[in-house]
Measured scan of single mutants.
Amino acid sequence: KQVQVGDEKYTFDTPEEARKFAEKVAKEKNLKVTEKNGNFHVE
């Protein structure tokens, strides 16, 4: 599963790991997490 933050992409083995990372980054940057096709976008 992938997490996209701006132009950066991070790959994780499980959706749970990806979601945790996305939520942590979103909180730090005051952004929101959206899920698209099983991948997460922080925007």
Rank of each mutant, 00 (worst) to 15 (best):
T14S: 12
K24H: 10
V3M: 01
V33Q: 02
N37T: 04
N39H: 12
N30L: 06
D7Q: 12
K20I: 13
K29T: 10
F12S: 00
V25C: 10
K32S: 11
L31Y: 10
R19C: 06
V33I: 11
T11K: 07
V42I: 10
K20S: 12
K32N: 09
K32E: 08
N39Q: 12
K1Q: 10
R19I: 07
G38V: 01
R19Y: 09
E43A: 11
K36M: 11
A18T: 01
F12W: 01
E43D: 12
P15E: 14
T14N: 10
R19P: 00
Q4M: 15
E35F: 14
D13N: 12
E43V: 14
V25I: 14
F21S: 00
K29Q: 14
E43Y: 13
K24V: 07
V33N: 02
K9G: 05
E8C: 12
V33E: 04
T11E: 10
D13Y: 07
K1W: 15
T11G: 06
H41I: 15
H41F: 15
K29M: 15
N37P: 00
Q2G: 07
K20T: 12
K24P: 00
A26P: 00
K1I: 15
E23T: 07
V3T: 02
K32R: 10
T34W: 10
G38I: 01
G38F: 03
L31R: 05
E17S: 05
K24T: 11
V3N: 01
Q4F: 15
E23I: 09
T14V: 04
E28H: 07
D7W: 10
E16I: 05
D13R: 09
E35A: 05
K27W: 10
V42E: 03
A26Y: 02
T14G: 05
G6D: 07
T34R: 07
E43H: 13
V5W: 10
T14A: 05
N37G: 11
E8H: 13
R19H: 06
K32V: 14
K20H: 11
G38D: 05
D13M: 08
P15F: 13
Q2C: 11
H41D: 05
K9F: 14
K32A: 10
K29S: 11
A22R: 01
E8Y: 13
T14W: 03
E8A: 12
T14Y: 05
E35G: 04
R19T: 03
T11D: 10
V25Q: 06
E28T: 06
Q4L: 15
G6S: 05
D13I: 07
L31T: 08
K36H: 12
A18L: 01
N39G: 09
F21Q: 01
D7I: 10
F12R: 00
D7S: 12
T14F: 05
N37S: 05
V25T: 07
K9W: 15
A18V: 01
K36F: 11
E17M: 06
Q4W: 15
E28L: 08
E8R: 14
A18P: 00
K24R: 11
N39R: 09
F40W: 12
D13E: 11
Q2D: 09
T14M: 04
T34F: 14
A18S: 02
E28V: 06
E16S: 07
K32I: 14
D7G: 11
K20D: 12
F40V: 04
K24E: 11
H41R: 10
A18D: 01
K9V: 15
Q2S: 13
K32W: 09
D13Q: 10
E8P: 02
G38C: 02
E17K: 04
V3Y: 02
K20M: 12
E17G: 05
T11I: 13
T11R: 08
G6N: 07
Q4G: 03
L31D: 05
H41E: 08
A18E: 01
A26V: 03
A22Y: 04
Y10L: 04
H41V: 15
A26C: 04
D13S: 12
V5T: 03
K32F: 11
Q4Y: 15
P15N: 10
E17R: 03
Q4P: 00
K36S: 10
F12Q: 00
K27D: 08
A26T: 03
V5G: 01
G38Q: 04
E16A: 08
K32C: 12
V5C: 09
P15T: 14
V5R: 02
V25D: 02
E8V: 14
N30W: 05
E16D: 11
E23Q: 09
G6K: 04
V33A: 05
T34Q: 07
K24A: 12
L31F: 09
T14I: 04
F21G: 00
N30A: 07
R19G: 03
A18I: 00
N37E: 10
T14D: 12
D7N: 13
R19E: 05
K27A: 13
N37C: 09
T34P: 03
E43C: 07
N30P: 03
F12V: 00
K1V: 15
K36V: 14
K29F: 14
E43G: 14
K36W: 11
F21V: 00
E16N: 05
E8K: 14
G38K: 03
N39E: 12
D13G: 10
E8L: 14
Q2I: 15
E28M: 07
K36I: 14
V5L: 07
E28A: 07
F12E: 00
E35S: 07
E43S: 13
H41M: 12
A22K: 01
F21K: 01
K27F: 12
K27G: 09
L31A: 12
K36E: 09
V33T: 03
K1C: 13
Y10M: 04
K1T: 15
E28G: 06
H41K: 09
N37D: 14
Q2V: 15
Q4V: 15
F12C: 04
D13V: 07
E23F: 12
G38E: 04
V42H: 02
K9N: 10
V3P: 01
N39W: 14
T11Y: 15
Q4I: 15
N37V: 03
K36G: 04
E17Y: 00
K1P: 15
N37M: 06
N30K: 08
R19Q: 08
G6W: 06
K32H: 11
R19L: 10
F40C: 00
K27Y: 11
E17P: 00
T34G: 04
N37K: 05
G6A: 06
F12A: 01
Q2W: 15
F21P: 00
Y10G: 02
T34E: 07
G38S: 04
K29P: 06
K29G: 11
F40S: 03
D7F: 10
P15V: 15
F40R: 02
K9Y: 14
K9R: 13
K27S: 12
H41A: 08
E17W: 00
V3D: 01
K29R: 13
V33F: 09
K9P: 04
Y10W: 11
F40Q: 02
A22Q: 00
L31W: 15
G38Y: 03
E35D: 07
E17H: 04
L31H: 07
A22M: 04
Y10V: 04
Q2T: 15
A18N: 00
A26N: 03
E35R: 06
L31V: 08
E16G: 06
G6R: 05
N30C: 10
N37Y: 07
A18H: 00
K1F: 15
K29E: 08
T11Q: 11
A26H: 02
E28D: 12
F21R: 00
V33G: 02
V33C: 07
N37L: 07
T34D: 05
V3K: 00
K24S: 10
V3A: 02
E28F: 05
K9D: 05
K36A: 09
A26G: 05
E8M: 14
E28N: 07
V5I: 13
K27C: 11
K29H: 14
K24G: 08
Q4T: 14
F12I: 00
E23R: 03
G6F: 11
K24W: 12
Y10T: 02
N30S: 08
E8N: 12
V5K: 02
T11C: 12
K9M: 14
T11P: 04
D7L: 12
H41S: 10
K27P: 01
V42G: 03
P15G: 09
T14Q: 05
N30R: 06
K32T: 13
K27L: 13
L31I: 05
V3Q: 01
T11N: 10
Y10P: 01
A22F: 04
V25L: 12
E16M: 06
V25R: 04
N37F: 08
G38R: 00
E17D: 10
K20V: 11
T14P: 00
K1D: 05
F40L: 12
F40T: 03
E16F: 06
V3R: 00
E35Y: 14
E35P: 02
F12N: 01
E43M: 12
F21C: 04
T34M: 08
E28Y: 05
A22S: 03
G38P: 02
N39S: 13
R19K: 11
P15W: 14
P15I: 15
D13K: 10
K32G: 07
V25P: 00
E17Q: 09
F12P: 01
G6I: 06
P15A: 14
N37Q: 07
D13C: 08
Q2K: 07
V33W: 07
K1M: 13
E23K: 05
